[in-house]
Amino acid sequence: MNDNTRTGWLFVAPAVVIMLVACLYPVLSAVHLGFYEWSMGTPWSEAKWAGWTSFQIAFTEPSVWRSLWTTLKFAAVSVSAEMVLGIALALALESNLRGMAFFRSLFILPMMVAPIAVGLTWRYMFDAQFGLINAVLVALGFAAKGWLAEESLAFAAIIIADIWQWTPFVFIMVVAGLANVDSSVLEAARIDGARWWTVTTRVKLPMIAHVLAITLVMRLIDAFRVLEVIYVLTFGGPGESTEVLSLHIYKTAFIGQKLGAASAISVLLLVVVMVLTWLALRMSNPMRDNEGDR
């Protein structure tokens, strides 16, 4: 290690240490807790060693796998829709026309609303008797629906609420990415006869692929951790139809009072998110591309 490298490591060492402690300690703590039976509100001295039992439950309990499947469906549908809509909006509003700044500000408002407020707002909007959604449906000649009373509709409801809140995040990220695209490259493509669609799909989006990948990963992680909106909107029902894994963990920990089992399931969630993140980053890794160019 030469002096420059050593100096570089010294400069980044504090940040690395803080990140390691901040990230690893909670994870290790959750893994540790997974080996105990401990109920909230009791002293730690009353915790009982449970060995691998909680982890066995996490991997064999049907309700865990049901909620994981619900989470996967939720994440796949909502994040896909958010990516498509966010990119489309960003492409539509990237030009610096008059009034575009206002629309951009307007679009990011949902993201700033607290999740509990989002849940409550959509709960009122989806109300079968008095909700805005049914009022619009009836005005358009459709039948009113029991949005939160039927399994498939309740699932659709939580996805709609998530899309409403998080499409603006994709929008912001993509707008920022597009702003950094070299205009001379676009100009060159146009001079070569490329039309809007070709410029967009062959030039713009590939040039911001790394931004799209990071956005996708961040949305996937968030979608896997979603809790408050679903807690307020459906509490996981009807039945267990909208019980995502994080809500299942919440119920296991704070209703079932099984903190060890909840921690074990949290570790499962962490592994799933890490695998998905790794896959998403691997699919579009700017560092790897750059290495290839050298």
Partner: peptide
Amino acid sequence: GPAGIPGYGQGE
């Protein structure tokens, strides 16, 4: 009953 009971909390 009124539509939507399986989604009703006490408030609804």
